[in-house]
């Protein structure tokens, strides 16, 4: 990877991806819990999740529990691979000899 993935190369989106990757594969997390883990505001988090959804990295499910709306987000295979590639990109930068 020569250039960082623009969908992930942003602090909040990187945190979202990392938080989702820590869950068992394909397990979703509720929006409110993700907000607490990432430490973002509701509007900010929603906008970044949309960006990741458009990139095809996360799956978003919306339903109701009783009368309460619930949004759940899960990292999919493509997203997991994209994060792994991004981590490899970061490691390459760190491991590169000085002056390159």
């Amino acid at each position: 990877m020569d250039q960082p993935d623009p969908a992930i190369h942003q602090t909040v989106r990187l945190k979202i991806m990392a938080a989702l990757k820590a869950l068992p594969p394909r397990d979703p997390i509720e929006f409110v819990r993700l907000k607490a883990v990432v430490g973002a505001t509701e509007g900010n988090l929603g906008a970044h999740i949309t960006t990741l959804e458009v990139a095809g990295y996360v799956d978003v499910e919306k339903d109701f529990v009783g009368k309460r709306p619930r949004t759940r987000i899960a990292l999919n295979k493509k997203g997991r691979r994209a994060l792994e590639d991004y981590v490899a990109y970061l490691r390459d930068i760190i491991d590169a000899p000085p002056g390159i």
Binding site: K15, A18, A19, K21, I29, V38, V87, R91, I94
Partner: peptide, 11 residues
């Protein structure tokens, strides 16, 4: 990388 690791741990 540190940020990724810390967020994964929190999650």
């Amino acid at each position: 990388l540190r940020e990724i690791s810390q967020t994964e741990q929190r999650s």
